[in-house]
Design a protein around this nucleic acid. Structure first.
Length: 648
RNA sequence: GCCGGUGUAGCUCAAUGGUAGAGCAACGGUUUUGUAAACCGUAGGUUAUGGGUUCGAGUCCCUUCACCGGCUCCA
């Protein structure tokens, strides 16, 4: 056999294999082992997920994908999306299909279904039809469109205007269709799609349609309104069950639900949506977090400031917020004939303080910090518990520094972020967002600011990803994504190097050479907002705040009336020692009161009965570990003290 | 704001178009209790709001408001 009719491909283990030309990934799998061939669902070719029947090229780096590989879920979910679309069109022949991408843990598909609104009952019908399609064992076959214009016309004739539009857009990108064929090889359905896909539908076994919602063609509210079906798909039924279980768990942790159980916060129609009332329990948690926050900031050379909640429009004209952020600001109020606004951001206020006197290069850096409450208009449909509100308190800081101090400042912020996130038990990941398409400032400024951010990340040996073009128009930034106790992602700290405001406000200092120089301004928030952070914490801890944060740290429970005196003494001693203590001596059984304390997630219960009165000990029950037996009061004191000091 | 859904006692939920109910919580008693719910009783409602259809509306239709799931945006 000559070399031309063969291809050599490389395998993950470093070995290589020679196959006939036109061999596909499936052929490769078969040549490796029957077992692998049976399990194969696709291939990773030069790092890209591809169909199992993709012909291989000389020198390709190949990994055969099986359900054991995380990448295989992309194939599964994408193919399941097509099965869903086919099912929808079987049930609703008038339905036109838009797009159906995979998302985390699942996928969705958008449809235009004239004269029908999808309901939850429809979902089970569609699911049943999908099972049918899966059992029909249809083949998914990639098909290069030979005549794009003809295909566009065909789509138009079928009324598939979204597909026609997409194809028109991709006409020069070698567009492909995927044919779905029955066992006799007849094409029963097709969809414009780049792929890749599973070889056939029989692999699709464990899926569930989750919800319907509205959407727009291309996410544009001026374009067609579509109906979206969200769904999830897994290889095994057990995985699907686990996933649904995780959803249930997440639902149990919902901060709005826990708020009712634990009496944490409320919103009121008489007051307005998106405005949070902090009840004593959550206010206690917040106050402790704020104390901690002040403490770590003080130790890092921050100075605390307070700024007004309303300001003349002049301020926001200078800052540019009226022009670029006006849509999110509340309309003006008239004060002595002058228009004023509720503040949407703290930065202009901090700049006012900076500019209240002449600053020398020796004064820098100046780190100003404020738990600053701001008000922003959010569209009514986006409000969500404490996580998306209209009035909130940011843990906002602005650092004014010289160019030569920038990297060091950023590095120290990253250090602070690390301390804060570790304290609350979040893991995190950093993203460096670079210059977007629309921006202000010079290329040199962008380069300097971006390089400083990156250098700081590197100096701290922090892994980060680059979000190219993800910066805001006035600043490159580092964003941190947090991962909570059940692995969910939250928006975390942010660091931005502002290339705009120092110019607009003429923020300067006198340099060593006696000349006025422009100061560099860094915005940073670590917790984000107290509302969102505390809302997130509720879910992260599932309502069981660690002892250092718990609204009530221990409850003293006298067994009967004759133990009240003794219980009160213990209660008093603990309260005087600075703990947050409650005594529950109401005329209920001890079981009842223990249950109440458990439901309230109080970390410690101290049961006082005859034995304890005699021995002078306390019987300790922990909300998680249950009855811990009797111990001396001092021992308990030391134990809880250590726990609080360690913030564990 | 848009699409879809929901709104009944403080909470969780019932009530084929035909007299609004339960459990928990609250309150009053009784019980004095050993590690997740003692017993008896009392009170609690313009069924989110305003209108309409009907002999009759919690239930059907429309308005407004709020909430829920998304779209979009962001702390």
């Amino acid at each position: 056999m000559s070399v031309e009719t063969q291809v050599t491909i490389n395998l993950p283990d470093g070995s290589s294999k020679t196959l006939n030309q036109n061999a596909t990934a499936a052929d490769l799998a078969q040549s490796i082992s029957q077992g692998l061939y049976r399990k194969a669902v696709g291939a990773l070719i030069n790092g890209e997920i591809r169909d199992l029947f993709t012909p291989l090229q000389n020198n390709d780096q190949i990994k055969i994908l099986t359900p054991d590989d995380p990448e295989s879920y992309e194939l599964l979910r994408h193919s399941t999306a097509h099965v869903m679309a086919q099912a929808v069109q079987r049930i609703f022949p008038q339905a036109k299909i838009a797009i159906g991408p995979t998302i985390q843990d699942g996928f969705y598909y958008d449809f235009d279904i004239p004269n029908h609104t999808l309901s939850t009952e429809d979902l089970s019908k569609i699911e049943a039809e999908m099972k049918k399609i899966a059992s029909e064992n249809q083949k998914l076959v990639r098909y290069n469109i030979p005549d794009v214009d003809k295909q566009i016309k065909e789509f138009c004739d079928q009324g598939e205007k979204f597909k026609a539009e997409l194809l028109e857009e991709h006409k020069n990108d070698n567009p492909t269709l995927y044919h779905m064929k029955d066992k006799d090889g007849n094409i029963v359905w097709n969809d414009l799609c780049r792929g890749p896909h599973l070889p056939n539908t029989s692999l699709i076994k464990a899926f569930k349609l989750l919800k319907v919602s509205g959407s727009y063609w291309r996410g544009d509210e001026n374009k067609d309104r579509l109906q979206r079906i969200y769904a999830t798909a897994w290889w095994k039924a057990s995985e699907l069950e686990d996933y649904l279980h995780r959803l249930e768990e997440a639902e149990k942790r919902d901060h709005r639900k826990l708020s009712k159980q634990l009496d944490l916060f409320s919103v009121h129609e008489e007051v307005g949506p998106g405005l949070i009332f902090w009840h004593p329990n959550l206010a206690t948690v917040r106050a402790i977090i704020e104390d901690f926050w002040r403490d770590v900031h003080r130790k890092r050379g921050y100075q605390f400031v307070y700024t007004p909640h309303i300001a003349s429009e002049q301020l926001y004209q200078i800052s540019g917020h009226l022009q670029s952020y006006g849509e999110n600001m509340y309309s003006s109020m008239d004060i002595d004939g002058q228009p004023y606004r509720a503040k949407p951001m703290n930065c202009p206020g901090h700049i006012m303080i900076y500019k209240s006197r002449l600053r020398s290069y020796r004064d820098l850096p100046i780190r100003m910090a404020e738990l600053g409450t701001v008000y922003r208009y959010e569209r009514s449909g986006v409000l969500h518990g404490m996580l998306r509100v209209r009035g909130f308190t940011q843990d906002d800081s602005h650092i004014f520094c010289r160019p030569d101090q920038l990297e060091e400042e950023i590095s120290s912020i990253i250090d602070l972020v690390d301390l804060m996130m570790k304290t609350f038990g979040y893991s995190y990941k950093a993203y460096l967002s670079t210059r977007p398409e629309k921006y202000i400032g010079s290329d040199e400024e962008w380069e300097f600011a971006t390089n400083s951010l990156e250098a700081a990340l590197k100096s701290r040996n922090l892994n980060y990803e680059i979000d190219a073009g993800g910066g805001v128009f006035y600043a490159p930034k580092i964003d941190f994504k947090l991962f909570d106790a059940i692995g969910r992602e939250w928006q975390g700290p942010t660091i931005q190097v502002d290339l705009n405001l120092p110019k607009r406000f003429d923020v300067t200092y006198i340099g060593e050479n006696g000349n006025r120089q422009q100061a560099i301004m860094v915005h940073r928030a670590v917790l984000g907002s107290m509302e969102r952070f505390c809302g997130g914490l509720i879910e992260h801890y599932a309502g069981a705040f660690p002892t250092w944060l718990a609204p009530v740290q221990a409850v003293v429970l006298p067994i009967s009336d004759r133990h009240q005196e003794c219980a009160k003494e213990i209660y008093k001693k603990l309260q005087e020692a600075g703990f947050r203590i409650r005594i529950d001596d109401k005329a209920e059984t001890i079981n009842y009161r223990i249950r109440e304390a458990q439901v309230e997630q109080i970390p410690y219960m101290l049961v006082i009965g005859d034995k304890e009165m005699q021995s002078g000990q306390v019987a300790v029950r922990h909300r998680r570990h249950g009855d811990m037996g009797a111990m001396s009061f001092d021992k308990f004191l030391t134990q809880i003290k250590t726990e609080i000091d360690d913030k564990s």
